[in-house]
């Protein structure tokens, strides 16, 4: 009796301590960032280009580059990912080959992002001749998040109950109508949540973008996908690797902006989930 209670409280204490450590580190990190970053954080910072003088440098180019990347990447990866998931779940024969394919896709989700950078360099930059443009950057990020979107969408599609599929078949629906008008709408919250979370991973990526040749210093906003680009994590990386401490401070400000965007994204995921579940179309 005694021993069991002691073990119990030791385990509980251990779990508490782990949680506490994780939270404490996070709080310290944020505190540090705010201390350094907030003094530069104003509209001017958002609205000016990078500069050799930290006091006048801003993230305009990087912010717009990141917005471009988000837009283009979702344009490529979402339809492709969802369509793949629909094919695998609804149409592919449940053969060993399909199973193998699925396992491989799931594994691809865990491949280090730098590998995708190298793939993007070989395919988009060199072979297709997109050079260091937004095309290369966003297509590379699309490759990176495609497996995650596929796996998340497959899960969402699979969780649509058989009963409402049967209901639609019993009303004289054909397969494509069931998939398009019943299964996908019902799976939408799950698909969107997966898409948003994977996009927010893409936003934070640096390595693959460096490899496909995104630049760290840019004094214009990309106007078309053919243009060069930079992105928030790259800009932050660029500043943080300079010797002057002034740049380290604005790097912290950049991180705060990046965190704000990520937070916005995740918040959106939560809202979409709840909205769609409460008011099904």
């Amino acid at each position: 009796m005694q021993v069991r209670m002691v073990t119990n409280s030791i385990f509980k204490g251990f779990c508490f301590l782990s949680t506490f450590t994780a939270v404490a580190i996070l709080v310290m990190l944020l505190y540090h960032l705010f201390l350094k970053g907030t003094s530069h954080l104003d509209l001017d910072f958002l609205n000016s280009f990078s500069s050799r003088r930290p006091g006048r440098a801003g993230i305009k180019a990087a912010l717009w580059g990141t917005l471009w990347l988000i837009g283009l990447t979702s344009l490529f990866a979402l339809p492709l990912g969802v369509a793949t998931a629909v094919y695998l779940e609804e149409y592919a024969e449940k053969s060993r080959l399909t199973r193998l394919l699925e396992i491989n896709i799931a594994n691809l989700a865990g491949v280090p992002s730098i590998i995708y950078g190298l793939l993007g360099l070989a395919i988009f930059v060199r072979f297709l001749g997109f050079d260091r443009s937004l095309w290369s950057g966003s297509l590379t990020l699309s490759l990176l998040i495609l497996p995650v979107i596929i796996v998340a969408s497959q899960g969402a599609i699979r969780s649509v109950p058989l009963s409402i599929r049967e209901a639609s078949f019993a009303l004289g629906a054909q397969k494509w109508q069931v998939v398009l008008f019943v299964v996908l709408p019902a799976a939408l919250p799950g698909i969107l949540t997966g898409a948003i979370l994977s996009l927010s991973r893409a936003i934070g990526e640096t390595a693959p973008l460096i490899i496909v040749g995104a630049v760290g210093y840019m004094r214009f906003i990309p106007q078309t996908p053919n243009d060069d680009f930079t992105a928030l994590p790259l800009q932050i990386y660029d500043w943080a690797s300079r010797p002057q401490s002034g740049f380290h401070d604005i790097a912290a400000s950049g991180i705060l902006v990046l965190l704000a965007i990520l937070l916005l994204f995740n918040l959106n995921a939560v809202i979409i989930r709840q909205k769609l579940q409460r008011y099904p179309s």
């Binding site: 409402i164 049967e166 209901a167 639609s168 019993a170 009303l171 709408p185 019902a186 099904p280 179309s281």
Partner: peptide, 14 residues
């Protein structure tokens, strides 16, 4: 030939 199932299965729509 319509069908009504054991468990009510309305669509998650209006």
């Amino acid at each position: 030939i319509g069908m009504v199932f054991q468990k009510p299965n309305p669509f998650p729509k209006s």
